[in-house]
Structure formats: C-alpha cells, structure tokens
Amino acid sequence: MKQFSAQNFTAERAWGSDLLSDFGDVTVRMHWTDQPYKWHKNSGKEVFVVLDGAVDMHVREDGVERIIHLKAGQGVSVEEGDEHVAHPVGEARILVVELKDSE
C-alpha cells in the first residue's frame, strides 16, 4: 500500500510526477506544476483531475480554442486525438490516468 498527499507533493521541475500505480499499459501519476505543459494530442484516452490548486485546460475543437477552468476536485476526460494544453493557475497538483507511452 502506498499513501500519498496531494497537498504536500512537489517536484524538482514543472510536470514532475510520482508514479502511484502501473497497470501494465496504463499509469496513474500525480504531477506537480507551476508552468503550462505544451499543446499535444494523446495516443489514447486520459483522465485529468485537479487535486490541489486550479488549472485552465485549453482545448481545440474544430479549430476553435476554448478554456475550461478546473478547480480542486474537478477534471476532464480527454479522448484520443483531442488537442489540449494545461495551464496551472499558480501551483497545481494533478492526477493523470493515461496509457503508459502517452505524452
């Protein structure tokens, strides 16, 4: 059993993570960041949940960009090929469930 605390988790760099569980093809990671990620499309589905802090999730659908503001306890389910980028508002801790080789 592995115990963890989102409120106390930090990393040496933005988007640093702690592997919470590995299910073979799928991983569950807790990330810490204070910087945006990069625009990308996953090679599979992703579940993205804000554990602490807030994140503005930018998504592009049919060439139109929109922003989803996520607070602690809120998240999004991202489909394969959905273009998106996460912008934390200050520091944020995020739970990500995705295929092992996703970006």
Rank of each mutant, 00 (worst) to 15 (best):
H58T: 00
Q3C: 02
E98I: 11
W15C: 05
E46T: 06
V89M: 03
Y37D: 00
G44N: 12
A11T: 10
L51P: 03
N42W: 06
H40C: 02
L20Q: 08
V50Q: 02
E103Y: 13
Y37V: 01
V47G: 06
I94Y: 06
G16D: 10
H87Y: 15
G16M: 10
L20G: 02
R13D: 01
D18F: 01
G44A: 15
E98D: 14
V49G: 00
F9Y: 13
G44L: 08
A86E: 02
V76C: 13
Q3R: 07
V96I: 14
G81C: 06
T33W: 03
I94L: 12
G81R: 01
E91C: 05
V50M: 06
A92E: 04
V28N: 13
D56I: 03
E91P: 01
R60P: 00
E61V: 15
A14T: 01
D62W: 04
G24C: 12
H87C: 12
M30H: 03
H84R: 07
E65F: 04
K71W: 06
A54K: 12
S17H: 15
V85N: 01
M1E: 11
E98L: 11
R13G: 02
H84C: 08
F9R: 02
A86G: 12
E98Y: 10
W39P: 00
A86M: 08
I67Q: 10
F4K: 00
K71A: 14
D25S: 15
H69K: 12
R93C: 09
E80T: 15
G24V: 12
K41A: 14
V85M: 07
V89G: 04
E65V: 02
H58W: 00
W32D: 01
E79A: 15
M30Y: 03
T33S: 15
Q7R: 14
S21R: 01
Y37A: 03
S43K: 11
V64I: 13
F4H: 08
G44F: 09
A92H: 08
R60A: 07
P88I: 05
L70F: 09
A11D: 10
R29L: 10
G16V: 12
D52V: 13
V97C: 12
E79N: 13
R66D: 13
V55N: 03
V64D: 03
W15G: 02
H40Q: 03
H87P: 08
R29M: 08
Q35W: 05
S5A: 10
H69L: 05
V49D: 02
L95G: 05
A54W: 09
D18V: 05
E98G: 06
H40L: 01
H87N: 14
D25N: 14
A6Q: 07
W39Y: 04
E46H: 02
V26D: 09
D82V: 15
D56C: 00
G16H: 07
N42Q: 12
E46W: 05
G16R: 07
V78F: 02
I94E: 05
Q7S: 15
N8C: 04
V49K: 05
A54D: 08
G90R: 12
L19M: 13
D18A: 11
T27F: 11
K2G: 00
E61A: 13
D56W: 01
K2M: 00
K2A: 00
V50P: 07
V89D: 00
H58Y: 04
A11Y: 11
T33C: 09
T10M: 04
Q35K: 15
N8M: 00
A72C: 11
D18R: 11
D25V: 07
K38T: 13
